[in-house]
Simulated assay, not measured.
Amino acid sequence: MNKPNYKDIARHAGVGTATVERVLNGRGGVRPELVEKVLLAARTLNYPRKLPEAHRGLLRIEVLMVRPETTFYQRLSKAFERIAATLDPLVVVQRSFAEEMKPDEIARRILSTDVARAGLILAVPSSPVISAAVHKVNAQGLPVVHVVTRASDRVGEFIGIDNYAAGRTAALYISRMARRTGPVVAICHPVYQVHRERIRGFSDYFHEHPGPIAFEWLGFSRDEERYGAESLSVALGMYPHLIGLYNAGGANSALIQVLRRHPRGRDVLFVGHELTDYTNAALKEGIMDVVLDQAPEAQAQRALDLILRRVGLTAIEPDRAPIRFITITAEAL
């Protein structure tokens, strides 16, 4: 195989041969992000000479998330950490968290120019101020990818499961697995678009399949233990013959505790999201019946692949299909 030359490196990095020459010979005058593209292309092609080290670590991908106390976001953060360890040392993946209910803080973090960024991955809720910040940085040329949920409907690519299908799947399980007929309730965190999509799919399924098992009531939890427990307690009081519960969001542990203590708790067919220590134990105990896990590890891999493609560090176009969610029951543990 022929040794790579300037043209090969330029083609791989998406720059001109003059830029490659300036970088490899240390002549300066090249933007840091282009320097990193050239050096990474040269390393990938095994260019047979010692490469400059002055700009190492400047190709930075920032990942901004919320709710570090939750198992799901811990899994997502850990996935980014593990994948980052397999990338070229020239690529740095910086993970950080912001407060979910402080949109101004999230917007400020998105707009920050403290450190040069080659790409931005967001797992944050949407709001007008956050959306405006996303639009601004994207207009400045920063690639943006949304994971789990969208911070903007118009800018950036989305990596996640088909949440509408997840909601319909939850409805299907309850309607087919319920041990008797009666009312069904759901709980969600309305600030997240993906939760609203799940509830829409859940509701549409029951609307299209009318019968003695019906979706009667929607409660709001903010994905917090106290609010989730209060919502479910209210539902159990309103519907003495409740037969099904769908939690479209988090805080499953509080719902599990309510059902565990309630005299009718084990009669309620419970479908929720994310495999955690709590939901694993609840499945084994029979408090929970089905878990729909949205595979944060797969979402992290796809998001990084997409950013690397957008900045020209790989020629492989990632799959565009929604991430497959995983259905887990006690029999699969």
Score class of each variant (00 low, 15 high):
residue 27 R to H: 07
residue 28 G to S: 04
residue 28 G to L: 04
residue 28 G to A: 03
residue 30 V to K: 03
residue 31 R to T: 04
residue 32 P to S: 09
residue 33 E to N: 09
residue 35 V to G: 01
residue 36 E to I: 00
residue 37 K to G: 04
residue 38 V to M: 01
residue 39 L to Q: 02
residue 40 L to N: 06
residue 41 A to Y: 00
residue 42 A to P: 07
residue 43 R to W: 00
residue 44 T to V: 02
residue 45 L to T: 11
residue 45 L to I: 09
residue 46 N to G: 10
residue 50 K to V: 09
residue 50 K to P: 10
residue 50 K to Q: 13
residue 51 L to G: 08
residue 51 L to E: 11
residue 51 L to Y: 10
residue 52 P to Q: 07
residue 53 E to G: 08
residue 54 A to G: 13
residue 54 A to V: 05
residue 54 A to L: 10
residue 54 A to S: 14
residue 55 H to Y: 14
residue 58 L to I: 01
residue 58 L to T: 08
residue 59 L to R: 08
residue 60 R to T: 07
residue 61 I to G: 01
residue 63 V to N: 11
residue 64 L to S: 04
residue 65 M to F: 09
residue 66 V to C: 12
residue 66 V to M: 07
residue 67 R to C: 07
residue 67 R to N: 14
residue 67 R to Q: 13
residue 67 R to P: 02
residue 69 E to N: 06
residue 71 T to Q: 14
residue 72 F to Q: 12
residue 72 F to C: 10
residue 72 F to H: 14
residue 73 Y to S: 10
residue 74 Q to W: 07
residue 74 Q to V: 08
residue 75 R to E: 12
residue 75 R to D: 12
residue 77 S to V: 02
residue 77 S to T: 09
residue 78 K to I: 05
residue 80 F to R: 09
residue 81 E to T: 15
residue 83 I to V: 14
residue 83 I to R: 14
residue 84 A to G: 08
residue 84 A to P: 10
residue 84 A to V: 09
residue 85 A to K: 15
residue 87 L to A: 07
residue 89 P to H: 03
residue 90 L to G: 08
residue 90 L to W: 05
residue 90 L to E: 00
residue 90 L to D: 01
residue 91 V to P: 04
residue 92 V to Q: 11
residue 93 V to G: 02
residue 94 Q to V: 12
residue 94 Q to S: 12
residue 95 R to I: 15
residue 95 R to C: 14
residue 97 F to H: 10
residue 97 F to G: 03
residue 97 F to D: 01
residue 97 F to M: 03
residue 99 E to Q: 14
residue 100 E to L: 05
residue 100 E to W: 01
residue 101 M to T: 11
residue 101 M to C: 06
residue 101 M to F: 15
residue 102 K to N: 13
residue 103 P to H: 06
residue 104 D to N: 15
residue 105 E to K: 12
residue 105 E to D: 13
residue 105 E to V: 15
residue 105 E to N: 12
residue 107 A to P: 00
residue 107 A to T: 06
residue 107 A to Q: 03
residue 107 A to G: 02
residue 108 R to S: 13
residue 108 R to T: 12
residue 110 I to T: 05
residue 111 L to V: 11
residue 111 L to I: 11
residue 112 S to K: 12
residue 112 S to T: 13
residue 113 T to G: 09
residue 114 D to I: 02
residue 116 A to V: 14
residue 116 A to M: 14
residue 116 A to C: 07
residue 117 R to M: 15
residue 117 R to K: 15
residue 117 R to Q: 15
residue 118 A to M: 04
residue 118 A to D: 01
residue 119 G to K: 13
residue 120 L to Y: 05
residue 121 I to Y: 02
residue 121 I to G: 08
residue 122 L to N: 00
residue 122 L to G: 00
residue 123 A to R: 05
residue 123 A to D: 03
residue 124 V to W: 08
residue 128 P to E: 09
residue 128 P to N: 06
residue 129 V to D: 00
residue 131 S to F: 04
residue 131 S to D: 14
residue 131 S to E: 12
residue 132 A to F: 00
residue 133 A to R: 03
residue 133 A to W: 05
residue 134 V to P: 05
residue 134 V to A: 00
residue 134 V to K: 01
residue 135 H to Y: 01
residue 136 K to W: 01
residue 136 K to L: 04
residue 137 V to N: 09
residue 137 V to E: 09
residue 138 N to M: 10
residue 139 A to C: 07
residue 140 Q to I: 02
residue 140 Q to S: 13
residue 140 Q to V: 05
residue 142 L to N: 04
residue 142 L to K: 06
residue 143 P to F: 10
residue 143 P to E: 03
residue 145 V to F: 07
residue 146 H to K: 02
residue 147 V to F: 03
